[in-house]
């Protein structure tokens, strides 16, 4: 049927949803990277506490933002029930809600033994009293000694799930060419872990600032460099993919690559500048920590810009 087509950008999930996707991916990947570091590089109490708490706060803030935008807040109870996955295994928001919820739970449990050991947390008024109870200390020691890796991997699986979900949720909308393709989950997963590494580099450089962390920082920088390169390759694929095939995609390409915020802000300062800063650091080393700090800040800003523009450049082709 030949119908007149109207092309429109969507106005339903706007910047607030970009923040939700950003905080979800960043928070979950931060927890995952922190726990993998603690399990396989070296036990690192302070990093786990920083990663776990900031990750849980990010996931909570992002989920809170989505919750605030629901039309019926009470009905959200249906998607909080884990059994929803048996009733709606095809709905990515159901999976995402479960991944986020369990990520926060396992993240908290993983950090729990370190919380009991933390002088700062035990000095806090109410929390300190709770952490000092004998049965709490027994539980923490039991979890830390016997189930640390099991809990760590449960958190890791859920963390990867959240990062992938942030892309899959957009991929499930068939009317938008920019979203409905397998590149979106790959791009958003790479971006989530890249921003998480950038965030943890900031923590290591500005909060910890210890010489013995150098091997961890080098590994983070190298992995981040690979992830930024991956993002650039995926974005180039998107550029060529959107050039032909559908009018919706072509208009999305016009919106993205015709916008200086996307071109210079995201691709330029959010990817290329950090790429070269980190490449130089990996090959020749920087004499100061500040180029890597600057690179990490730019990666974090770029991560948000990616999602902001992806939400804004979604073009629907409505018949009518």
């Amino acid at each position: 049927m030949d119908a007149t087509i109207t092309y429109e950008t969507q106005q339903i999930w706007t910047s607030w949803f970009a923040v939700y996707l950003y905080l979800g991916g960043l928070g979950a990947a931060t927890l995952t990277v922190t726990f993998l570091t603690d399990m396989y590089l070296r036990p690192y109490k302070e990093l786990v506490l920083w990663g776990a708490f900031s990750g849980i706060v990010m996931l909570g803030a992002g989920s809170g933002l989505l919750f605030l935008h629901l039309l019926d807040h009470m009905a959200a109870i249906h998607v909080m029930n884990p059994l929803v996955l048996f009733e709606k295994p095809d709905a990515w928001i159901a999976w995402g809600t479960q991944f986020i919820s369990w990520m926060m739970i396992w993240g908290f449990i993983y950090a729990f033994p370190y919380m009991v050991e933390s002088d700062f947390l035990r000095g806090l008024p109410i929390l300190g009293w709770v952490l000092g109870r004998p049965w709490v200390m027994f539980l923490a020691a039991h979890a830390g000694n016997h189930f640390r890796r099991t809990i760590g991997w449960l958190a890791t699986i859920n963390g990867i799930g959240v990062a992938v979900y942030t892309g899959l949720v957009l991929q499930s909308f068939p009317a938008v060419t920019l979203w409905h393709n397998p590149g979106v989950p790959l791009l958003f997963t790479a971006s989530a872990f890249s921003t998480a590494l950038a965030y943890l580099l900031l923590v290591l450089h500005l909060v910890m600032n210890r010489e013995e962390d150098h091997p961890i920082r080098v590994i983070y920088e190298r992995i981040d460099l690979i992830l930024i390169s991956t993002e650039l390759v995926i974005l180039f694929s998107f550029f060529t993919y959107l050039q032909s095939g559908s009018e919706s995609g072509y208009r999305s390409a016009e919106l993205l690559w015709g916008d200086l915020g996307w071109l210079i802000g995201f691709i330029g300062f959010g990817l290329l500048v950090p790429f070269f800063l980190q490449l130089k650091g990996v090959i020749w080393r920087w004499p100061s920590r500040y180029p890597i700090v600057a690179s990490a800040v730019l990666v974090l800003c770029g991560g948000y810009l990616l999602r902001h523009y992806f939400m804004g450049a979604a073009v629907f082709a409505y018949p009518g």
């Binding site: 969507q10 339903i12 935008h69 019926d72 998607v79 068939p174």
Partner: peptide
């Protein structure tokens, strides 16, 4: 059952 996330509104190609 509807919590009003509006994903359906974005998924529908017919508005």
């Amino acid at each position: 059952l509807c919590m009003g996330c509006q994903a359906c509104a974005l998924a529908c190609p017919y508005r």
